[in-house]
Design a protein around this nucleic acid. Sequence first.
DNA 1: CGAGAACTTGAGATAGCTCAACGAAGGTGG
DNA 2: CCACCTTCGTTGAGCTATCTCAAGTTCTCG
Lengths: 232, 232
Amino acid sequence: MLTQTINTPAINTQIIGKVAPAHSVTDQFGAITGHVGLVATEFSYRKDEEIYGEEEPAEYVYQVVSGAVSSYKLLSDGRRQIGAFHLPGDVFGLESGPAHRLAAEAIIDTTVRLVKRASLEKAAGTDVHVARKLWAMTASELRHAEDHMLLLGRKTAMERVATFLLEMDRRLAVAGMMALPMCRRDIGDYLGLTLETVSRALSQLHSQGILGFSGARQIVLRNRQRLQHLDA
Amino acid sequence: MLTQTINTPAINTQIIGKVAPAHSVTDQFGAITGHVGLVATEFSYRKDEEIYGEEEPAEYVYQVVSGAVSSYKLLSDGRRQIGAFHLPGDVFGLESGPAHRLAAEAIIDTTVRLVKRASLEKAAGTDVHVARKLWAMTASELRHAEDHMLLLGRKTAMERVATFLLEMDRRLAVAGMMALPMCRRDIGDYLGLTLETVSRALSQLHSQGILGFSGARQIVLRNRQRLQHLDA
DNA sequence: CGAGAACTTGAGATAGCTCAACGAAGGTGG
DNA sequence: CCACCTTCGTTGAGCTATCTCAAGTTCTCG
């Protein structure tokens, strides 16, 4: 882990809260570290590069600066379940226990900021606000996982795809358009479907005029209300 | 919520850590509250009684004393996904935010201990060990949810049932036998299957000699190794 | 002992999967 | 800048794991 990628020689170390102020009031790293003075390092990974493996010791906590990351579990025969996609601004790899419980990999070229888990733990041990924030971030991941269990256990393929599109629209739409960083297989592994089923659902939504394409991964939602209706 | 059930008139209020010491070193409530002197109340619910609803304000945190509880989400047409079963000793209903994100109901007659969420929050605000424990409990729920997403998204029916049996065996087997508190429909709603598929899988395991029944809910695992092999 | 709920089993239906072929797009080297 | 090549996405056809619907059986509890 943390083997420097060929294309990204520069490591950029910063004192968070001084050199790198929070982008917004909801910046997760800023909220934790702004008044603690933790050292953050920037790091880059290429598409498909593993950031950490399942059960690997959780030495760092990460925030996506640019790019996109998936967290996933594998079965021994290769079946994969992606538990979450991490987009710019998202924190990932935060663990309360000693090890990562999902693996993480960059799904496109990605830059992250990272801080040592130990330094966060130390800050949480002295500052109750930091401790509260760490709890809140884990609780937020839990909420997402609970919603996703409902999707995986009980929704139809079309409902899953509709939920996915609304989630991505909320998280990464710019000017009414979203540029999906992930391929159809990744979407399928997130939704518990095959890539073909995802493709067919998207084609059907396209033919119904609910969404428009400009390239397979550039999607514009033309009727969010109908999409919400398709979601259960 | 908290309407007293007809069969359980006595409310038993205790000072946790004095009158009700932790049952074991791993007792969750004891670990939080043992040195904080929080007031806990005992309360009982009858089979199928709702303990709290989805999106209801999270006023209390609960621990199962006896019985069993399910936490679930519903879709508008009644499809249900159970996210977790809570068995004696388990804490449930702990939220970092203001509301419960799953509903909870007793699946058999159940007694719980409960403490006010506000008092836990207050304790966490002054005692960093309490804060750490709350985080760890939420992280533990997240771990379970992540494992369950893999099950719901990628495992076959037989693999799901095998996983379920091994989980229940671990959590409630006494003298090699487990007494399941939940019906086949609950198991199906936990595993993302129909009750018929659950029944067929159990029948198949029975006919293969991997488990034995004494009544539909009294199960003894006769070959854990073969069961683990059926789990992916 | 009787009635209702829970469970099992069977048979047919179907949503989503698998396998396969084709087409589009994007990156690379000439 | 073009042409190739690889990867990604789409679509079709048939298959199958699981669901649905239904009937019969067993268990529980009043």
